[in-house]
Design a protein around this nucleic acid. Structure first.
Length: 878
RNA sequence: GGGAGCUUAGCUCAGCUGGUUUAGAGCACCUGCCUUACAAGCAGGGGGUCAUAGGUUCGAACCCUAUAGCUCCCACCA
């Protein structure tokens, strides 16, 4: 069969993925082998694949496939996250587009729409991962809101409630007025914004015309002011302590209070105190027992307590009130001011600090052991610079607001009784039983369940446990099932640093709480995929290529390589399509090397030529050395470097040197010894390539020789690092340099490759390697001694070995002489520098013996080279 | 404001315990080649004051100090 000159990924990718699935090669069951486990960071169920997923999942697949080929029982558990707020926002938007308002729906109606949406869009992303070649155990696919996992979340809630760590209280929380829900501190992103600082006059209520001026960026909240505060030590305002001022526009009287919090060197030294809409003001309010006036509704519009601008959005109100204040003569001035504003991670709405009744989980007691796992290296963060960041956060962790005013998610298992009491239980029946202990007359209709759901992360922090055995959460006395016992703790977690606290830290806490053990051993933190301008690639910026389009264009293997080429752990990946192009080109190189080998006839009786025997010996050594190097890279999670070594091994060592060496001249056959050695090398190379480039390696492995149905490269063993001969490798290295030097002379002197040359070698060089040079540099003869005096030609030095090519009339004698003299001058300078170093008594005394010996050898070698050049100058000069 | 990290070739990065002749790689670039596996290729080549300035040391890309620039994380100054 004639193979095309170019590799066409589309011909093979779907075929092999289907084959792997058909033979259940991704599936894992506990057995006597050592497990290797990864749980996928579950993507949003209705999400689509973006470049971050591509990077993240390529890394996971490389690690999983490699572990599998190392003989481990590899299990990569896939799944999706219900992504409470993100999904609910999408469903709300979709309904809105259809003219349906969420407020007009019952919870049940809304959830019906949400599930419909999930069924329609859910899992698309998992299908996309298959295009990438992800070897997930799809039979184990989980969803964070499937019944068993939701029940585990509920039990976790009950568990912590009974432990006294979950409590309900009124606190200032981060309110997302678009999502109309509370969000946790970690879901707030602070960004600097150019704002306006308004200087507003508050007149003293005595009609004297005296006033003080406050500076604020939020004039629309003045109606919620319940005091104006000044620093007690601020001389400027001491006379005002205890006086009353009037809120402009509404004329409400509020006290002037003294509090240390107020800075004297900022603004005017007077602070409006708005306990309902600012966390600091809230705390001042608590200290001074100020009333709380909340003038904002949950959607960020002013309510009737504001008295004016009722129903206006907070930002519209800000502009309007500024004009009203100016018209009323209360606006002293405005100035531009850069301040930090919090935005919602999910909806991008400006976060509103808001007082509300929420559920919280105490973190202190969980943070401590979770910190220890990382500090004592039971869990390794890769790269380890994240240890500091992790510690910093864990040491100052605050209680976690876990309730969300949403419907899509696990509903909080708390029921309120008619008398206002609350019972927390895993089910309604259990809640009723508990309630009846105090009042036997109660029935189910008396119980009213909390409307809120829990934060998404309150479900995903259970993921490494619940994907295997959801019953292991919150069931005292439960014996972990076989899966959990076998696969937990998992080995590696591959995720983005952005969710180190959201998710990774909390998984460690949950793992410790429910399993008494860390959920994973290593956390590999990927970087952010950026475009050429350094911007994060995102759908909203429109600078992200469509991953499936990339796969169509460059092949999955090409894209995988593109993702891995320049992304060491923790580093951002400056993505460029040319990286995928390089991957595609590499695939083509592999393909063509195969075409060459495949074309050789078996059973040729020719004797193995000397150069081929040398080549086989050398490549075996080079291969084993590289395998050892790659193993070392993987031990250190240096995937980019491992890939680069594979790339060079295949392209440079195997194709450019080995194949070129053993390649017969046109029409000649390859001897059988060399041919079978080459096939065996190629087989090993495919194994090494497979974790990185699963499709092309499988395709070629299948073509390499007849395979049984169900056989696959992905379940073969990686070649183990064998011993190798360093001397042979370095001798070959020198041979390569000699060949390159001869080729350079050809190029410089315009001597075509077809024209054979002679070579004289004087000095340390193994004559056994002469045939290699003859083949690769087209040398008719190599003589193991110096040329005759007076011969015109070109020469070069490698180490202390002198090489000479007679060129007859091709030579430009003047040029050659100049080159030798330049060389001589350089060597003399070099030796002079070393001689000076060696004449420094302190150096000879203090430096280790081998360093001094090395310098001595450099000196001797340099002197030998000088001697050789001088000799040659004599010869050239005749 | 606090903390962490970075700065090595045009770009992206290695350089691990201070000493391996004159600091490496991939890509890009330049030159010559369609040589029967591959032009998505082959052969050859050029390119760096290791951010700057001091210091320690026999010896510094590497250790210390300062300066400049960049990045990330955390944080309630209106």
């Amino acid at each position: 069969m004639q193979l095309a000159a170019k590799y066409n990924p589309a011909d093979v990718e779907d075929k092999w993925y289907a084959y792997w699935q058909k033979h259940r090669l991704f599936h894992s069951e506990p057995d006597e082998r050592e497990p290797y486990t990864i749980v996928i960071p579950p993507p949003n169920v209705t999400g689509v694949l973006h470049m971050g997923h591509m990077l993240n999942n390529t890394i996971q697949d490389v690690l999983v496939r490699r572990a599998r080929m190392l003989g481990k029982n590899a299990c990569w558990v896939p799944g999706t996250d219900h992504a409470s707020i993100a999904t609910e926002a999408k469903v709300v938007a979709k309904l809105k587009a259809e003219g349906v308002d969420k407020a007009g729906l019952t919870r049940e109606q809304f959830l019906a729409h949400a599930w419909e949406w999930k069924e329609k869009h859910g899992g698309i992303i998992l299908e996309q991962l298959k295009k990438l070649g992800a070897s997930c155990d799809w039979e184990r696919t989980r969803f964070t809101m499937e019944p068993a996992l939701s029940d585990a979340v509920t039990r976790a809630f009950v568990h912590f409630y009974n432990k006294g760590w979950i409590y309900r209280g009124v606190r200032m929380v981060n309110w997302d007025p678009v999502g109309r829900t509370a969000v946790s501190d970690e879901e707030v992103i602070h960004r600097e914004q150019q704002a306006t600082l308004y200087y507003i006059r508050y007149y003293i209520g005595d009609g004297s015309g005296a006033y003080l001026t406050i500076a604020t960026t939020r004039p629309e909240t003045i109606m919620a002011d319940t005091a104006v505060a000044v620093n007690p030590n601020d001389e400027r305002h001491k006379h005002l302590h205890g006086k009353k001022v009037l809120i402009p526009l509404i004329g409400k009287e509020i006290p002037v209070i003294a509090d240390d919090y107020v800075a004297t060197d900022f603004g005017t030294g007077c602070l409006k105190v708005t306990p309902a809409h600012d966390i600091n003001d809230y705390e001042i309010g608590l200290r001074h027992r100020l009333p709380v006036v909340d003038i904002l509704d949950d959607d960020g519009k002013l309510n009737e307590k504001a008295q004016i601008l009722v129903g206006e959005d907070r930002f519209a109100a800000r502009e309007k009130i500024a004009r009203m204040l100016a018209n009323a003569g209360h606006l002293e001035k405005t100035e531009s001011y850069a301040n930090q504003v919090g935005f919602s991670e999910r909806t991008s709405a400006v976060i509103e600090p808001r007082l509300s009744l929420q559920w919280f989980l105490k973190m202190k007691d969980m943070a401590e052991p979770a910190l220890q796992y990382v500090m004592n290296d039971e869990i390794k963060l890769i790269p380890d610079k994240f240890r500091n960041t992790y510690r910093h956060w864990m040491e100052r962790v605050c209680d976690w607001c876990i309730s969300r005013q949403l419907w899509w998610g696990q509903r909080i298992p708390a029921w309120y009784l008619p008398n206002g009491d609350v019972v927390v239980a895993a089910t309604e029946d259990e809640a009723l039983l508990a309630a009846q202990k105090t009042n036997p007359a109660l029935t189910k209709t008396d119980l009213k369940q909390d409307d809120d759901v829990v934060d998404t992360w309150f479900s995903s922090w259970l993921w490494p446990v619940s994907v295997f055995d959801p019953q292991a959460i919150g069931n005292p006395g439960h014996t972990p099932n076989a899966d959990l016992q076998y696969y937990y703790p998992t080995n590696d977690l591959i995720t983005a640093p952005e969710i180190l606290f959201f998710w990774v830290a909390r998984m460690i806490m949950a793992g410790h709480e429910f399993m008494g053990a860390a959920p994973f051993r290593n956390v590999y933190l990927t970087g952010i995929v950026r475009d050429k301008q350094g911007q994060k690639m995102s759908k909203s910026l429109g600078n992200s290529p469509d991953p499936l389009m990339l796969i169509a264009r460059y092949g999955a293997d090409g894209v995988r390589m593109g993702m891995l080429l320049t992304s060491p752990a923790g580093n951002d990946l400056p993505f460029d399509e040319s990286l995928c192009e390089q991957g595609r080109n590499f695939c083509n190189k592999i393909w063509n090397a195969f075409r060459l080998i495949k074309g050789w006839q078996a059973g040729a009786h020719a004797a193995q030529p000397a150069h081929a025997a040398q080549a086989v010996t050398w490549f075996r050594n080079a291969l084993h050395k590289t395998i050892a190097d790659i193993n070392d890279d993987f031990d250190k999670y240096r995937l980019s470097e491992a890939l680069m070594k594979v790339y060079k091994l295949f392209w440079d060592d195997f194709c450019a040197w080995y194949l070129e060496l053993i390649k017969p001249h046109a029409g000649q056959a390859v001897d059988e010894v060399t041919r079978s050695a080459t096939l065996s090398f190629f087989d090993m190379l495919l194994r090494i390539l497979h974790p990185f480039m699963p499709f092309i390696s499988e395709e070629l492995w299948q073509q390499l020789s007849a395979r049984n149905d169900g056989e696959s490269l992905m379940t073969q063993r990686l070649p183990a690092a064998g011993g190798f001969d360093e001397i042979n490798i370095s001798n070959f290295e020198m041979t390569k340099n000699a060949i390159t030097a001869v080729r350079t002379i050809r190029q410089n002197k315009n001597i075509p490759m077809k024209e054979p040359l002679e070579l004289y070698v004087k000095g340390d060089f193994d004559p056994a390697l002469f045939p290699l040079m003859q083949k690769m540099a087209n040398l008719s003869a190599v003589y193991p001694h110096a040329q005759q005096a007076g011969q015109p030609g070109a020469s070069f030095l490698l180490g202390t070995t002198d090489f000479f090519i007679p060129l007859g009339n091709l030579l430009n004698a003047y040029e050659e002489l100049k080159k030798l003299r330049d060389d001589l001058a350089y060597q003399q300078k070099f030796v002079a520098a070393i001689t000076q170093k060696l004449s420094n008594a302190k150096f000879v005394q203090n430096a280790p013996a081998q360093v001094v010996a090395l310098e001595r050898k450099k000196q001797a070698d340099g002197e030998a080279r000088i001697k050789a050049i001088e000799d040659k100058l004599l010869i050239v000069n005749g």
